[in-house]
Design a protein around this nucleic acid. Structure first.
Length: 381
DNA sequence: ATGTAC
């Protein structure tokens, strides 16, 4: 039976994976529904960290057929989380000394092309930023194990409860931005026909940015580890901003993840704010209902402008360089320090509980912050 | 988010 192409495709299924106890901003839901009405869209999933973004919501996954939408991936193509097992006991941590010394601003003084080659990645022209954390919600955080909930999985990952870990959240820096801009200059927020030359061109650059972003996290980790005089082993690395081919209910779709961790690539870390636990989780069950995706973090509760104003009224910048975990925060950009303060985020525990109750993950371990590196640069006001 | 827009 032939199916005639329709000019008004059925609107996508919309699902939000969040319990009634999880607060989701109305604007984020409206954005999710608006994206769901795009041509070719089949499934739009909001994860429990869903919050409003620039046009499209963050904490969401979208599956489309025939067309793909670069603006849904956004500018930070390849952004994600990498976790390293650090060859150092938690009781040997020198957070205060490290906080005074760590500096990842500016280009790495090593051979970036050589580093990329070791990781099988081509140079991009943005290598001056390779090994830098970037802005916004990006960070590199030394962590200790708070509690192990699934010892078998924890052991199988080669982890030890008494050792430090390093979590790196960063992306492809200027490379992803340039890749999106080149696309938007021609097509705006419109979709690309999957067989078009422009789609192939975008996907080639996108895939490169994803690989480069992964290498960037590896170099950030290397610089952090060099800075504390330790070595490390990469345990996992997952990307939460990407578009990839996906078979969904028999149809060849494009899966866009915008602030959505993969369900189908093994364990992932879902970080809270710098002042809360991060969760090492193992995907379980059937991921199809969530478009094979998971929350990628706590999700913002306050937008950046509101967070700056609210936090400035109540807290000194100095007080925000320590957390309730007694961990240290390196963030010499005052505005960013306020924007990223823990109260600006939703409680991570609720987000993870929603995923557990949806049958999507099992908690392997909780990780507590020891030292969070944001930036050493005195940017903006 | 961005070697950051007009």
């Amino acid at each position: 039976m032939m199916t005639a192409p329709t000019s008004t495709p059925p609107s996508a299924q919309v699902r939000i994976i969040a319990s009634s106890q999880s607060w989701v901003e109305g604007e984020a839901v409206r954005q999710l529904e608006a994206v769901a009405r795009s041509p070719g869209m089949r499934l739009a999933v909001g994860l429990p960290d869903l919050h409003p973004g620039k046009g499209a919501p963050v904490g969401a996954a979208f599956a489309s057929e025939g067309l793909l939408y670069p603006y849904l991936v956004g500018n930070d193509i390849g952004c994600g989380m990498g976790l390293w097992d650090v060859d150092l006991l938690a009781r040997k941590a020198k957070a205060e000394r490290w906080a005074a010394r760590l500096d990842l601003e500016g280009p790495w003084d090593g051979d970036t092309d050589g580093f990329l080659a070791e990781h099988g990645v081509k140079a991009s022209g943005f290598e001056m930023a390779l090994g830098t954390v970037g802005g916004g919600n990006h960070f590199a955080e030394i962590q200790r194990v708070d509690a192990v909930h699934d010892g078998k999985t924890f052991d199988a990952l080669g982890l030890k409860g008494e050792r430090l870990l390093l979590l790196v959240h960063s992306g492809s820096r200027g490379l992803g931005e340039a890749t999106l801009r080149a696309h938007v200059d021609r097509h705006g927020a419109g979709g690309l026909a999957q067989d078009s030359a422009d789609a192939r061109k975008y996907l080639t650059r996108h895939d490169h940015a994803v690989e480069w972003g992964r290498a960037n996290r590896a170099l950030v980790a290397r610089r952090m580890l060099d800075g504390i005089g330790a070595t490390g082993r990469r345990v996992l690395d997952v990307c939460h901003n990407s578009v990839t081919p996906l078979k969904l209910e028999g149809c060849a779709c494009w899966l866009h993840r915008k602030g959505a961790a993969p369900w189908d690539q093994g364990p992932v870390v879902i970080p809270g704010s710098r002042g809360s636990l991060s969760y090492l989780v193992l995907p379980v069950g059937d991921g199809s209902a969530s478009a094979y995706s998971l929350a990628h973090g706590a999700g913002r509760k306050w937008n950046r402008t509101n967070a700056r104003e609210r936090m400035r009224e109540r807290f000194s910048a100095e007080s925000l360089t320590r957390t309730s975990f007694k961990s240290h925060v390196i963030c010499e950009d005052r505005d960013l320090l306020f924007e990223e303060a823990p109260p600006a985020y939703k409680p991570i525990d609720r987000v993870v509980t929603d995923l557990v109750e949806a049958g999507l993950v099992r908690v392997v371990a909780t990780l507590a912050p020891v030292l969070t590196y944001k930036t050493r640069a005195h940017a903006r006001s």
